[in-house]
Design a protein around this nucleic acid. Sequence first.
DNA 1: AAGATTGTGCTAGCTTTCCAGTACAAGTCG
DNA 2: CGACTTGTACTGGAAAGCTAGCACAATCTT
Lengths: 121, 121
Amino acid sequence: MSGTTPSTADEIAALFRGAIRSGRLGDGERLPTVRQTAKDFDVAQATAAKAYKALEHEGLVVTRTAAGTRVAPGASRAPQAVIERARALAEAGEDAGVSLEDVVAILRAVWAADQPGPESH
Amino acid sequence: MSGTTPSTADEIAALFRGAIRSGRLGDGERLPTVRQTAKDFDVAQATAAKAYKALEHEGLVVTRTAAGTRVAPGASRAPQAVIERARALAEAGEDAGVSLEDVVAILRAVWAADQPGPESH
DNA sequence: AAGATTGTGCTAGCTTTCCAGTACAAGTCG
DNA sequence: CGACTTGTACTGGAAAGCTAGCACAATCTT
């Protein structure tokens, strides 16, 4: 019931981005092939390719034409403090039975609250 | 550089959802009118209306035709533990200079990691 | 060196969503 | 009661993204 099966290039990119930044995919580790990812998420190859392209553009992965796509050396993990607090939040959320989407919405709201509010009415 | 200005019905709904679940919008508090929200985010009225509709469908808001849309009584705040940890994560993320989108991606990855993998082929 | 693997590029068509403007119904407030 | 406010509904058109299939180039593997 995670509910959210990625179905757009952005969502797929976000998925791998998370895997990389959270350390679940380590330096130099290989991502599935474009074709495989397309199958996995039941999308067109062009969509999976677009996702990979975005990741490369961000410097998160390195892609060589026939060698596959691998996590770029160095620029992988986010600071441990962030990861740990993310874990804490995830655990709290699941314990409380709050859906992932809700937790994300809360995080966004809290994030915006810290900064000088752009919204004014 | 908050970057993400909501421009779709889903995103707008998510924004208010976060505001409500995080307690930034309390019980009975009134949301902007559909027309106002449409202006605020520079979208069509139908789009703002669709967002409100979704929120009502989730039971987060109550809407009476000429009295406006208000936060539904009771079903508002998420558990305090979740909110606090969300705050902690937000602070850690901003301190570390990690973007909101990245933090969200990490959260999603960590969340999925706890549960049995939905991947199946 | 030869064949298989893998990322890229392209076209055409489709589906979904949003836009814009307007009209209507239901409730509030003076 | 009467005027205003506010959410809802509708039409037609436009834009963005995905699908599907194929061809190509670069690299790996044997």
